[in-house]
Computed example of a mutant assay.
Amino acid sequence: MPTAANRLDWVDAAKGLSIILVVMMHSAYGVGEDLNGTGVLHYIIGWATPFRMPEFFLISGLFLGQVIARPWTAYADRRIVHYLYFYALWAVLQIVFKVGLGTGDFASVGSQILWAIVEPYGVLWFIYMLAVYSLVTKLLFSFKVPHWLALAAAAALQIFPVTSGIGIVDHFAAYFVYFYAGYAFAPLVFRIVASAQGNALWAALALVGYAVIEGYLVFAGGAELHPRGITMGYAALPVLHLALGFIGSLAVCLTAALLIRLPWMGWLRWLGEHSIVVYLSFSIPMAASRTLLLKTGLITDVSTVSVIVMSIALLSPLLLYWLIKKTGWGRFLFERPAWAHIPGTPGSRSTIKPAAVQPAE
């Protein structure tokens, strides 16, 4: 397999691992809260807590260097407007479903939609922050801020936790360092992964050792597992927490690079390639399936219910995506239409001949 294609494969596989962890967390915590207990998925997510979101952002920054030097209009269309379109669309859909249809409080739907403009809504905060991180990184690039200075400032924000209560501020402080590191250190990450693929046995042994150490740091030192999360032990220490975020992110990349070499792991690459489809739409079937399962009262085991809910939340968006591709209806849900592009940019009405759309990926 050519090197370029190989890189894309493991990056997609890493995205696949990432989206599984995200859906697993929300499924387990939702069920845990409703049943007031913890299950096996709580332990897996607890172990992955130091790197679960950092690796998502680091991977998202890996290919930013290929577009960062583009003119502002082209860059903004691909890295800012692109994400904001899907955020706005799905925020409205989720608010209507959860607030309007879910509670019958249609009077507050409009106010919540307006509030979602300045306060990232629910699980969609990740999409919102990708646009913010892309904007800030482009500004840093335009003003020629050195990587070391940008990383030092971003690391300081992460090490000294910012708890303003304002979502956009707190999320920026917590995770921008990983997104920027993905952009700044992309060549190094690719070299490390390539080396690991050439030394698969040693890489696998290193990953096993890392997993054991990670588990000890997370669960030792006064850790407590809760239905809605975990209070980490030693892993919560500020500088160590930052380091574990980076190490864990790299471990996900190495794991993906090794797994994708197995002939039966193509599904993981495909899932990662469509991870944004799952991220945008998993919360609605997740909430609905959890509610229906618990109302039946047939299954009350936290682990069992969590696994069922997670499976439905992962598969439902892919089924919806397949139906849209098959019928052609609803393509705007996962593909950005021409009108949602900045005029003059690829895919906009002024630059296309037949109707065209840009996939969410």
Rank of each mutant, 00 (worst) to 15 (best):
L315H: 00
M1Y: 12
V302N: 08
R52I: 14
L21G: 11
H274C: 05
L225Y: 02
W270S: 11
G32D: 00
G182V: 01
A313L: 08
I342V: 13
A203D: 09
G198K: 13
L320E: 07
S303G: 08
R78Y: 00
K295E: 15
V67R: 14
D34K: 15
A13D: 01
L293D: 03
L293T: 04
H341F: 03
I308Q: 03
I247P: 02
A204N: 03
W47Q: 00
A203C: 11
V278M: 05
S60Q: 03
G266S: 02
T300P: 01
G110M: 10
F126M: 06
A14C: 07
Y279Q: 06
V99K: 13
F63K: 14
K326G: 02
R349T: 09
E273A: 14
Y175T: 08
S311I: 11
G222T: 06
L319W: 10
V31M: 05
W10H: 09
D34R: 15
Y121L: 06
V92I: 14
S316C: 07
A48W: 01
I59P: 00
L323N: 04
I45D: 07
A184F: 08
S350F: 12
T255F: 08
I192G: 08
H226V: 07
G222K: 09
A211I: 11
L62I: 07
I168G: 02
W329S: 05
P187L: 03
P187V: 08
S350P: 00
M129H: 08
R269Y: 01
A220E: 07
G297N: 07
A48C: 09
A69N: 14
G110P: 01
K144H: 14
T345H: 09
A288S: 12
L139K: 10
P71V: 02
A152H: 07
L101A: 13
P54V: 00
K138S: 08
A14S: 09
C253H: 08
T351N: 05
C253W: 10
V218T: 11
W329H: 10
F246E: 09
Y183C: 10
P120G: 13
Y43F: 03
I352L: 05
N199G: 12
A5R: 11
K295Y: 09
H42R: 03
L323W: 08
S142R: 14
F176W: 11
I276D: 02
G165H: 04
D34Q: 15
C253K: 05
Q112K: 15
S249L: 06
L292K: 04
L17N: 04
L140R: 13
V81D: 00
D12V: 03
A340D: 10
V123G: 02
G104T: 01
A107Q: 15
A91M: 11
G328Y: 11
I19W: 00
G110Q: 13
L258R: 02
M25I: 00
L89R: 11
V277Q: 05
S108M: 12
F185I: 04
G272F: 03
M265V: 12
A152T: 14
L271R: 02
H82T: 08
A356F: 05
I312R: 02
S350R: 14
K326E: 09
F56I: 13
A14L: 01
L250C: 10
R191K: 14
